[in-house]
Design a protein around this nucleic acid. Structure first.
Length: 214
DNA sequence: CCAGACGTTGTT
DNA sequence: GTCTGG
DNA sequence: CCAGACGTTGTT
DNA sequence: GTCTGG
């Protein structure tokens, strides 16, 4: 799955790679957790546009937006059918820029975090969905990250991983085209063991992505 | 018909 | 909103 | 994803 | 055990 990630590229780099005329100012982040505001790229009137939305998709029909806490990920295998995601899958897709992501592996009773980063690229673009929810007193924009089976390189650490869209597929994904939601190539990622300090979602500093022995 | 769910992951 | 279960 | 809470009453 | 908050 994908329950924590990082984004520490300069906003100008994000603008260049995603064809954006503006990107909201943001601080580098090394421990982005569900329920926080995250940067997404979506299609708006034939242009790519960045926005900050809450991670945890709240379906349009939800009576209580706290349901979003359980909608951080959507399975690629079923995203087109599930009531919570299918409308967004057809009409409200997004790309989610990331410098890397964390996955935990059970190691002798403990859960050990690993950091996965792009090999030969500056950023990942996760396949995502977004939604707009309107309550009586509150309106919310939210998103979810689509996951798929792990590729061979990830598999020893974790059996799922986020869908990573290649730059050639950005336009098709954002405009509702057919893009296979498959794991990326083994060569596209690097993996390293990192400190368990990342477990605490309130901790956020560059040291979290540094390699740890073991 | 109405009531109730609508999700993923990891662990057992 | 829409589908499944009762 | 992990960490941390999980409750009510009455008073300030 | 399960839910909420970060």
């Amino acid at each position: 799955m994908c329950g924590r990630y990082t984004l520490h590229a300069h906003p100008d780099v994000v603008a260049l790679l995603f064809g954006l005329s503006e990107v909201p100012a943001y601080q580098p982040r090394f421990n982005i957790a569900p329920a926080s505001q995250v940067l997404i790229v979506r299609r708006d009137q034939e242009r790519n546009v960045a926005a900050q939305v809450r991670w945890g998709l709240v379906p349009r029909w939800a009576k209580d937006p706290s349901i979003g806490a359980r909608m951080n990920n959507a399975r690629a295998e079923t995203v087109a059918q599930k009531p919570s995601f299918r409308e967004a899958y057809r009409k409200r897709r997004c790309l989610i820029p990331a410098s890397g992501f964390y996955e935990w592996k059970a190691e002798g009773g403990r859960r050990q975090p690993y950091y996965v980063y792009p090999a030969g690229a500056e950023l990942f673009a996760f396949a995502g969905l977004w939604e707009r929810w309107q309550g009586p007193h509150l309106s919310l924009e939210t998103c979810a990250i689509i996951t798929t089976e792990a590729n061979a390189k990830m598999a020893p650490v974790h059996e799922r991983m986020p869908v990573i869209v290649s730059p050639a597929d950005y336009p098709a994904w954002l405009t509702g085209g057919e893009v296979p939601l498959k794991p990326c190539a083994d060569e596209a990622i690097g993996i390293r063991r990192v400190s368990r300090a990342v477990n605490n979602a309130r901790v956020d500093h560059a040291g979290l992505v540094e390699p740890e022995a073991g």
